[in-house]
């Protein structure tokens, strides 16, 4: 059986909000090390890979592997019934067909319980080899989100160029063009505003901005984001969690 407790329901609410626009139904695999999810969006443009280590829970118990086949939007609907600071417990018996969620306020004088029906989902998995990327950029998650939002007013695509001078985001559409360039920098007072670039060769890739904007909904999970890119390959975009990560593999636009 699975029994996992979080001190604040907001932790799971934010994670589900970060992935729900891209995923419909998917399996969450639970074992003694934690919860993991790997799922492609319908169009096969983005893969979401979520890892929630058992250390990230205030209490965690999973004796035997459990697969939770869930509709992510149903999970989001139920989680809306929890207050952000409620204590949240996830429970599922072995071979059960439901996930039980309980929400308690800190004084434990209100306890809500919801049972979510589980499904058998025949899911596709992607084998992603360990990769050395040509460029790695660590930057503020909020700054990335803002930059992409600004450029989405111009075009449905953004081009990202990374070289030793910095990282440049640009877009061009009917009304004109725009770009934002960030130089590598170290901000001693606000470390999350630093921009760190590790590079073996310069990279330029273009991406659909609608999908990118869905990915950056994970900005509420982490102050920084790590972008990893190699020419002609999908990008890896990672938001670190206290014990785990939300990672996206994002297929680029390819020149004809």
């Amino acid at each position: 059986m699975l029994e996992a407790k979080l001190d604040a329901a907001s932790q799971l609410k934010k994670i589900v909000e970060a992935i729900r626009d891209m995923l419909g139904e998917c399996n969450i695999e639970c074992n003694e090390t934690g919860l993991a999810l790997q799922s492609l969006d319908k169009s096969h443009i983005v893969l979401v890979s979520l890892l929630l280590g058992s250390d990230g829970f205030s209490e965690y118990r999973c004796d035997r592997g459990v697969t939770l086949g869930l509709n992510i939007n149903s999970l989001a609907t139920v989680l809306r019934c929890a207050n952000n600071d409620d204590i949240l417990t996830l429970r599922s018996e072995d071979r059960a067909n439901e996930l039980i969620l309980t929400f308690e306020d800190s004084k434990a004088d209100r306890i809500s319980e919801f049972n979510l029906r589980l499904m058998d989902i025949d899911q596709e998995y992607l084998a992603i080899p360990e990769t050395e990327y040509a460029a790695t950029v660590v930057m503020s998650a909020a700054v990335l989100q803002r930059t992409l939002r600004d450029l989405s007013a111009l075009s449905e695509a953004v081009t990202i160029e990374i070289d030793k001078e910095g990282i440049r985001f640009s877009a061009e559409g009917d009304l004109g063009k725009g770009s934002t360039h960030f130089k590598p920098c170290v901000d001693m007072e606000n470390a999350e505003n630093s921009i760190n670039i590790t590079l073996s060769e310069p990279v330029s890739l273009s991406f659909n901005l609608q999908y990118f904007s869905n990915i950056t909904k994970a900005s509420s999970l982490s102050s920084t984001v790590t972008l990893q890119m190699t020419a002609g390959m999908p990008a890896q975009i990672e938001y670190k969690l206290p014990s785990g990560h939300v990672r996206y593999y994002f297929a680029p636009k390819i020149e004809d």
Binding site: L40, S43, H44, I45, V46, L47, E124, Y125, L126, A127, I128, P129, A157, S206, N208, M233, P234, Y249, A251, P252, K253, I254, E255, D256
Partner: peptide, 14 residues
């Protein structure tokens, strides 16, 4: 002109 690629053209699906 650029086209959207899909992840299945880079990684193996199982």
């Amino acid at each position: 002109q650029s086209n959207q690629s899909t992840l299945s053209s880079f990684f193996k699906i199982s």
